[in-house]
Write a protein that binds this DNA or RNA. Structure first.
Lengths: 241, 241
DNA sequence: CGTAACTTTGATTAGTATCAAAAATGGTGG
DNA sequence: CCACCATTTTTGATACTAATCAAAGTTACG
């Protein structure tokens, strides 16, 4: 269990020298396992570390004054889960383990110093933040301006591509370790309504489900139904065949 | 009309040396005026510059396949409006002038080179991106999990603080150069419903309106009504009195 | 096995959208 | 400076999507 997948991920979008790579790999860190449901950071905390997901799933969320929960992001192995904690004093949301998971805890000063000492690394992490931002923007659109069915399709499409990217999906089939209630909190609906939408998508042959695995049976129709365009994920252009 | 306000803004949250400051001020750029409503960048463009708002207002938005519009951010003088264009190839949303406005267009390579040459400047811009991200997260919560009235109160509270920060508001009174339709597109409602909410907030004595100026008449009640906590804006701690 | 968590279904309600039109406002050119 | 036109704001009536409430199945797990 090393930091290597994270380095590989940064490199997909940014140029790093051999020294940059080693410096990243040499980042001091402590590995800790968290059980599903464990909190890593709470809104308002002042963490002195930032964390990287090594295995399993994690999610970020906020709780409103009324007690409603809004899921903000889903993270998979290799993702920096709260890079912002390295540069912003106090956390503005919660991070929780979705499944049993392993995290690398990196001292915030180490990140900051590395960014200053090796600007290319700083830029790479900045790019990571920019892509994160782009995804948040798309989520604003998703919950703000799409109807229930479109929202659910959209998020399932996003998960399909992101999990495939992480080697956790193939042919638009993946295991999604979220309850329907958590999914509902990610798309701003109730779990009851999400359940109905999922059933209907199944009846229409767009998806099939078994336990927690989702298979998108008809990608083109699903993409259309979800008003999905992967531009916002900012994947580097694939080599032409 | 210079880049100075931007430098001042970056410095509020990040440490810059005298050389960093001068390097930022020396950034090559071209000033251009855009009339209200003019597009600066369109979703899918591959801009070779990134831009900084020098005067006036601008906003970012996306259009869904159904034709709905979701406003993603409001920007005021001193804001980098699309810093992500300096590091991400293709734009994932639109940027439009809300009022007549002046922008500084900075070549994307100049930004990238500066970040690499002066890591402290890179980190400062990265922090700017992180705060941006935090605001997007709050907007996800706002449109995803708050009812109409709370949403509108929340965004009016946010604007109050941000405009005050920019010297454009005082005592929670400010001019907001948005139509109710644009406001509706920022909170994921229809303009009709926003209008009704605004009227009711007026009747309850929470706000008063005159033309496009908004005055929050009762900040504590408004803050509660909007479930508003300014933590997500990540303002540096104010000096204790 | 037994129990808690999760999923599914049904019935009803609430909140917001939609449709339509009138009133107010802001610019513009004569 | 006024008359006119386009835009924006406001109000009313109705429709519909998704929420809520309730309860029965189902699955996972200790």
């Amino acid at each position: 269990m090393t930091l290597a997948p994270m380095v590989r991920k940064l490199e997909r979008r940014a140029a790093l020298s051999e020294e940059d790579r080693s410096a990243l790999l040499a980042l001091p860190h402590q590995v800790r396992r968290l059980a599903a449901g464990a909190h890593m950071i709470r809104d308002g905390d002042k963490p002195d570390f930032c964390s990287l997901l090594l295995s399993g799933f994690a999610y970020r969320h906020k709780i409103t004054g009324e007690g409603g929960r809004q899921v903000l992001a889903l993270h998979v192995a290799g993702d920096f889960v709260d890079l912002q904690n390295s540069l912003l004093e106090v956390s503005d949301h919660n991070v929780q383990a979705l499944t049993d998971a392993e995290f690398a805890f990196i001292p915030r000063d180490a990140i900051k110093e590395l960014a200053l000492a090796r600007p290319a690394v700083g830029v790479a992490m900045w790019i990571d933040t920019l892509v994160d931002s782009s995804i948040f923007r798309e989520w604003v659109v998703n919950v703000g301006r799409r109807d229930a069915r479109t929202r659910v399709c959209h998020i399932l499409c996003e998960f399909s591509l992101r999990l495939e990217e992480a080697g956790l999906a193939e042919n638009h089939r993946y295991e999604l370790p979220m309850t329907q209630e958590q999914l509902a909190d990610a798309v701003g609906l109730t779990s009851v309504h999400v359940n109905r939408v999922l059933r209907q998508l199944g009846e229409e042959g767009l998806i099939s489900r078994n336990r927690r695995t989702i298979a998108i049976e008809d990608w083109p129709r699903m993409r259309d139904a979800g008003d999905f365009n992967d531009r916002y994920l900012h994947y580097p252009a694939r080599a032409a065949p």
